[in-house]
Design a protein around this nucleic acid. Structure first.
Lengths: 145, 145
DNA sequence: GCTGTTATGTTATAACGTAACAAGATGGGA
DNA sequence: TCCCATCTTGTTACGTTATAACATAACAGC
């Protein structure tokens, strides 16, 4: 997929960040590059998500650049481990969940389009007290565990 | 747990609804009963979530009353199947996932507090064309599959 | 040049969530 | 009884997240 200029900018901002960024954080990061209004960011995010290059972390209302290559389709499960204190996030590979999800959701769903799994807790660093900052939304948070 | 008046109202509104309600939808539903401002609803929701009586469906930004009894702790996994067209939601039991989650998230997390799994797709009814309404956020949507 | 499509851009507003403060209600003690 | 702590209720105002609606540019193909 060919990325447009704006999509490149947004993707690059997310790749530079050490933790998930809200759409407005992306906007702020890109103001110096001429990005001025929310829809620009949201449109780019939408395309990038469609291409599997970016995921939305639902429980944070924030976005991360993806490191893996996902197949699209039912086994395109997006799974994240999230430290609720310092904001660190790790993307997990959980392809083995695909089949059991199909069985479990069969009561309601005939087709699966998208699955997401988010596990939150405390990272090793925060448990040891090594992650200085409390997650302040603005703070640069994200420790290396 | 003893519920306060407001908590009762909120829980009852969610139980009556056939699909997840946003906090503001709850607010609207309770205006006739004297509930006038968002914090009242959010506070009640927070307590109800803490008690496991209500869950937040992250990918919808909405809340549902819980039908099961959950143990609290790591195996308190909240799993939902969601029809992206008509808005129907089914809460799944996925206790077997608990252990594998622990393993998968171990790289980052030392402790798990909360896990959520959301699977979206099309329900049997929507695939057959039996669910009339497209999910319009205001529409009463939710088919019986 | 014309046309259809995609990308870009703006303004304004909807929808979701919380901070900060004030005021009643309750339930002990001293 | 009075004082104090605590909990619940309530308000206003604000911050954050997301989208609607519209206008314009850029470009490919005829």
């Amino acid at each position: 997929m060919e990325l447009t200029t704006q999509q490149e900018k947004v993707l690059s901002a997310l790749r530079k960040a050490k933790k998930p960024l809200s759409a407005y954080a992306v906007l702020d990061a890109l103001r110096t590059q001429g990005v001025r209004s929310p829809p620009i960011v949201y449109r780019a995010l939408e395309k990038l998500q469609g291409a599997g290059l970016v995921h939305r972390v639902e429980s944070l209302g924030a976005f991360v650049a993806c490191r893996h290559t996902h197949g699209k389709g039912p086994d395109g499960i997006h799974a994240f481990a999230i430290c609720s204190q310092c904001g660190a996030v790790e993307e997990l590979c959980a392809p083995s969940l695909a089949k059991s999800l199909g069985r479990k959701s069969g009561g309601l769903l005939a087709e699966i389009n998208h699955s997401m799994l988010e596990i939150s807790g405390l990272c090793h660093g925060c448990v040891r007290g090594a992650c200085a900052k409390k997650n302040t939304k603005k703070g640069s948070g994200a420790c290396s565990q």
